[in-house]
Amino acid sequence: MRNNLTFRWVKYILKFNKPAGTSRGVLYDKASYFIIVENNLGEIGIGECNIIPGLSPDDKPELEKHLEEICKKAETTEDISGLLPNGYPALKFAFETALTDLNQNGSRILYPSDFTNGKKFIEINGLVWMGDVDVMSRQLEDKVKNDFTCIKIKIGALNWQKELSFLKWIREKYSEKKLEIRVDANGAFTEKNVFSILDDLAKLKIHSIEQPIAAGNYDLMSKVCKNSPVDIALDEEIIGVKNRGFKEELLSIIKPQYIILKPSLIGGFSETSSWVSLCQQHKIKWWVTSALESNIGLSAIAQWTALQETTMPQGLGTGKIYTNNITSPLYLDGPKLGYNREINWDIPFLNLKKSVNQ
């Protein structure tokens, strides 16, 4: 990496093409902060600090102050690690990816592979967003028509009997051989109801459930993983756990069947790789999930994922949820995410500063 680097940041408001129901409420837009690093040859690397209101650890009033301070003080790659504050995983992800991009001459190809050469696809699951049952039904039918064989459905927001009826309707139409169903509870259930709900899910041959109870209760989550008739995947449980010893302890105590890896929420690819290494030791499976990033963050995550040689459907978004997403080589062919080098990046804020509201 060359010295004499200059850093700056831009805030960009991404607008959803329709209200997005999440476990943290309905979103109409969201902010992402982009780190732009330039060397003395004029090559530019870009990284995304993705913020999900109410969920991202970086969603703090001090974030912009930290961005300003780091960009003013940093002059080399080596400066960054000493300037990054603790408890800001998305910020770490942004600087890591920006510098990796710059190291590849600002090509936006951070991790060259058959995927970035257009010779390989990444199979993804289809996400059914939260909403009333009619809306969710239409989403599901659309995914099936587009050849998705793995669907992820958010649960825990509606009355459980309504959600269960919806899942039963799906399974009556599509067998487990035709359609793999993953559900995500975002910690919605409690000790009082979680085991009966898991029994209901098992009868429908559900593949797995993400975070059935709230994060932080290792003893109960361990009990759930041990006794559940449905495989358990940890999600929020691993956010904020950085120390390798703590990671080891968490996996040893809870013993999940899967973990969900969200690089922008757990501190970038170095932290993600650490989790993968521990999963291999503990014989725990995993998949990668994006978290409402723009195409800049999504592309970085997809490129890293393509190197892992995993065959499971991944939880990568498609970028189509925003009206003003950044044009990129990413594209979707049914349930397959691809990269087309003939499509150029179009990044509207490269020559702007501070804030863009589009």
Score class of each variant (00 low, 15 high):
residue 250 L to F: 13
residue 20 A to M: 15
residue 96 E to C: 04
residue 43 E to W: 08
residue 251 L to W: 10
residue 15 K to R: 14
residue 279 C to K: 02
residue 192 K to A: 13
residue 55 L to V: 12
residue 102 L to D: 03
residue 59 D to Y: 14
residue 171 R to F: 06
residue 219 D to V: 08
residue 233 A to T: 04
residue 208 S to Y: 05
residue 225 C to I: 06
residue 22 T to D: 07
residue 7 F to S: 04
residue 92 K to N: 06
residue 178 K to G: 01
residue 86 N to V: 06
residue 341 R to V: 12
residue 168 K to R: 06
residue 333 D to H: 14
residue 198 L to A: 11
residue 16 F to I: 02
residue 222 S to D: 04
residue 67 L to Y: 09
residue 244 R to P: 12
residue 312 M to H: 07
residue 134 D to G: 09
residue 310 T to F: 00
residue 104 Q to P: 05
residue 287 W to N: 01
residue 273 S to F: 02
residue 212 P to E: 08
residue 48 E to W: 01
residue 244 R to M: 10
residue 82 G to P: 00
residue 283 K to R: 15
residue 104 Q to M: 12
residue 334 G to H: 11
residue 116 T to K: 03
residue 311 T to V: 15
residue 141 E to P: 08
residue 227 N to T: 02
residue 178 K to V: 08
residue 242 K to Q: 11
residue 38 E to T: 13
residue 278 L to T: 01
residue 34 F to E: 10
residue 197 I to T: 02
residue 244 R to E: 12
residue 337 L to F: 09
residue 54 G to W: 01
residue 67 L to W: 10
residue 12 Y to P: 12
residue 294 S to E: 02
residue 352 L to T: 09
residue 209 I to R: 09
residue 313 P to G: 12
residue 191 E to S: 15
residue 103 N to G: 15
residue 286 W to R: 12
residue 358 Q to V: 11
residue 132 D to R: 03
residue 215 A to S: 11
residue 76 T to C: 10
residue 51 I to R: 12
residue 93 F to R: 06
residue 65 K to I: 13
residue 330 L to E: 12
residue 117 N to L: 14
residue 63 L to N: 13
residue 111 Y to F: 14
residue 148 F to N: 03
residue 353 K to G: 00
residue 95 F to W: 05
residue 113 S to D: 04
residue 214 A to G: 06
residue 47 G to C: 10
residue 350 L to M: 10
residue 249 E to S: 13
residue 238 I to S: 10
residue 66 H to F: 14
residue 307 L to E: 03
residue 62 E to C: 02
residue 1 M to Q: 09
residue 73 K to Q: 09
residue 345 W to F: 04
residue 205 K to V: 00
residue 284 I to T: 01
residue 120 K to P: 00
residue 298 L to D: 05
residue 220 L to I: 01
residue 351 N to L: 12
residue 202 A to P: 00
residue 255 K to R: 14
residue 78 E to I: 01
residue 188 A to N: 08
residue 124 I to H: 01
residue 211 Q to P: 07
residue 159 N to K: 07
residue 215 A to W: 04
residue 351 N to Q: 09
residue 178 K to A: 13
residue 270 S to D: 11
residue 81 S to H: 06
residue 30 K to L: 15
residue 281 Q to R: 12
residue 88 Y to I: 08
residue 102 L to S: 07
residue 230 V to R: 06
residue 241 V to P: 05
residue 292 L to M: 15
residue 309 E to I: 00
residue 127 L to H: 02
residue 48 E to M: 06
residue 68 E to Q: 13
residue 190 T to L: 07
residue 325 N to F: 01
residue 96 E to L: 07
residue 95 F to L: 03
residue 247 K to L: 00
